[in-house]
Nucleic acid binder design. Structure first.
Lengths: 199, 199
DNA sequence: CAGATCTGGGACATTGATGTCCCATCATGG
DNA sequence: CCATGATGGGACATCAATGTCCCAGATCTG
């Protein structure tokens, strides 16, 4: 079976998902983690892991694709094309924080995306990316977002701030429940004193 | 200087610096780089590298300390305690962009700072950090910076934005000479439409 | 020039991760 | 209850990185 019929159903699919999830979790923490580490985190024997992914390369590619999918799902759920741009953007930030683990995994290492992204994703313009670009353009058109700054830059900044917020929370610098609000505030107003409409 | 008499002078010191610089450059690009890679980048035999740093651990610790020193020097040169806070902050951002290579090396991998930072730096409160905290406080007191946001958060955001700007430049998304201006603009105003005083 | 020092490169043992194979065990479904 | 399939763990060969040692040539120094 070539499709998803066998890769999602029953015990087989559950083990597969457990491994992929564990891989993202462990690799987000330590990029040099061993396959044994990943297997342990997934509560699975190392040989079982090899049964599902013959290669380290193969495992990582699958984990990347999986994480990508989860992020796109979260972005879709945020409905960035609905309502006022500012509110949509806030939902988008919250959505990104929710999939923080996947974000840290994917974007914590630039090599991750460049190396393990051959055919499956390089061509597909990544729905999430497009939706965000659309949202930013819409916000710029309505005069809510700075129209002089490059769209892709804004996108990168969003990712960077979410990433930073998550790390700050991990270090105890920020309360975990305050990450979204802080990121939004900084994202919208920077560090200037004018944040009267950010709460 | 306690034992720096022999480690800074003449050919010996120059080779040492070449290795440290190469290490930072290569490891910023690829954290899993081999000692052979580093030696090659430094135009030095692998055995020579081992002569200067017996351990991989030792090399990395030295490289971390070296990078740290360069960053602190750049921060000092920016004189963050002089003049209006806003202008001082802009000088500070420019200074950080200048030592971008070191920043990417040090902060590109959270593990880098946590793992390779035993005694030499953990206790020392890192002059750079203190100066920046002072500056931010000063700016908050004078009403230029948002007083409701945590100081350390602002610091992290600065690092994150500089890092993002450098990566964007590396990807060709941003012209290299525009990094500083773009980072400053975003840092100060976020993405809102109000950036009239950012140029 | 002569001795001391530094250097590059090769040979080598060691170590840890990886990938393969096999077998005993356990669960699951027919 | 039995058969099929999934799992865990061990044994094993392989490979790349690491660290050590040594030697011959280059460079610096007095």
């Amino acid at each position: 079976m070539s499709g998803t019929a066998s890769s999602e159903s029953g015990a087989r699919g559950r083990t597969r998902r457990a491994i992929l999830s564990a891989a993202a979790r462990v690799l987000a923490r330590d990029r040099t983690a061993t396959l044994a580490d990943i297997a342990e985190e997934a509560d699975v024997g190392r040989s079982t892991l090899h049964r599902y992914f013959s290669d380290r390369q193969e495992l990582i590619e699958a984990a990347v694709e999986d994480a990508f999918g989860r992020i796109e799902q979260a972005v879709r759920d945020a409905a960035p094309d609905q309502g006022p741009p500012l509110e949509a953007m806030r939902r988008l930030v919250a959505a990104h924080v929710d999939v923080g683990e996947q974000l840290v995994f994917l974007f914590g290492d630039p090599q991750m995306l460049e190396t393990h992204t051959k055919e499956g994703l390089r061509d597909r313009p990544s729905a999430a990316e497009n939706t965000m670009v659309d949202l930013i353009r819409r916000g710029q058109a309505e005069g809510v977002f700075d129209p002089e700054v490059d769209v892709e830059w804004i996108q990168q900044v969003l990712w960077a701030l979410v990433y930073t917020g998550l790390e700050a929370a991990a270090q105890g610098l920020l309360p975990r429940h305050g990450v979204t609000a802080t990121v939004i505030r900084t994202f919208e107003n920077g560090i200037h004193t004018r944040g009267r409409d950010a709460s």
